[in-house]
C-alpha cells in the first residue's frame, strides 16, 4: 500500500512484559478504521510507536507511504495526532495554541493564519479563536485539538481515545465530526477506543486484545447480526 497507514508485524515489550505481539493491519486511504480494544490492550503503546514517541526494531510502520524508521520526519509531516491526554496550553488562546503547533510544522505568517482559520471553521469554533482554552468545555477543547491536528493538512489522522471524559452529546458530536471529515475530505483515520458505540458499520474494525489483533475487517461483516458490543465482548473473551 503506497498511501494510508500500514502496520506490519510490530511487536514491543516493556522489559519482560510484551505489550504488542506481531501486530499487522492496513488502513486504506480515505478509510475510517476503529482500533477497538479494552483498557490495557496495547492501544496507547501502538499509538506511541505510530507517533515515534518510541521506536521498535520489530516490524515496520508506514504513514502515507513513508517508513517511520527510515524517513520519520516525512512520516510525521503527513500525520495529525490527537492524544488521549489533553495537550493544550490552558493559559493561551485557541489561536495561540494553534499558531504554536503550526510553527512546529514550519508554518508561519499569513499562510499559518489562513490554515488556522479554515481548520477552526471546519470544526465550527472559529468564532471562539480569541478565547483562552481554559474557558472551553471538554468537547470544545477536543475540537480545538482536532482542528490543531489538521492545520498542516495531514493525510492520516490518529486519535487515541479522543472522547475520554466527555459527556454523551459531546462524544457523539466529535465521533460524527471525524467520520464526516473522513468521508468528505478523504482523510485516513485511525480512531482508538474501547467504546463500541463510536464504531459505525461502514468503518474498518481492528480488534486488539492483550497486545494481539484478534479480528479485522469491515465492522458490519465482522459483527454480522450480533450487536457490536456483544461481538466485541465475545471476541475478547471478556463476556461472562
Amino acid at each position: 500500500m503506497s498511501t494510508g497507514l500500514s502496520v506490519t508485524s510490530v511487536s514491543y515489550s516493556y522489559g519482560a512484559k510484551q505489550a504488542l505481539r506481531d501486530v499487522s493491519f492496513d488502513v486504506a486511504p480515505g478509510q475510517f478504521a476503529a482500533l477497538l480494544g479494552p483498557n490495557g490492550a496495547g492501544k496507547s503503546t501502538l499509538f506511541s510507536l505510530l507517533t515515534r514517541l518510541f521506536t521498535t526494531r520489530e516490524g515496520s510502520i508506514r504513514i502515507a507511504g513513508f517508513d517511520m524508521s527510515r524517513t520519520p520526519r516525512q512520516a510525521l509531516q503527513k500525520m495529525g495526532v490527537v492524544f488521549q491526554s489533553q495537550t493544550l496550553d490552558l493559559d493561551l488562546t485557541i489561536r495561540q495554541n494553534l499558531s504554536y503547533f503550526a510553527a512546529l510544522h514550519g508554518l508561519s505568517g499569513r499562510e499559518a493564519q489562513q490554515r488556522i482559520n479554515s481548520s477552526l471553521d471546519r470544526l465550527q469554533i472559529l468564532e471562539r479563536a480569541g478565547e483562552k482554552t481554559r474557558d472551553l468545555n471538554g468537547g470544545h477543547r477536543r475540537r480545538t485539538e482536532i482542528a490543531r491536528a489538521l492545520i498542516h493538512a495531514p493525510s492520516v489522522l490518529l486519535l487515541d481515545e479522543p472522547t475520554v471524559g466527555l459527556d454523551a452529546a459531546a462524544r457523539q458530536s466529535i465521533t460524527d465530526h471525524v467520520h464526516r471529515l473522513c468521508a468528505d475530505e478523504g482523510l485516513t483515520v485511525l480512531w482508538a477506543t474501547h467504546l463500541t458505540d463510536e464504531v459505525f458499520d461502514t468503518d474498518q474494525l481492528v480488534v486488539l486484545h492483550q497486545g494481539r489483533i484478534l479480528a479485522q475487517g469491515p465492522s458490519a461483516t465482522l459483527r454480522g447480526d450480533t450487536p457490536l458490543k456483544q461481538y466485541f465482548l465475545q471476541t475478547t473473551g471478556i463476556a461472562a
Partner: peptide
Amino acid sequence: RLLLTAPL
C-alpha cells in the same frame, strides 16, 4: 508528546 511529534 506534542513537541516531540513535530517533524524536526
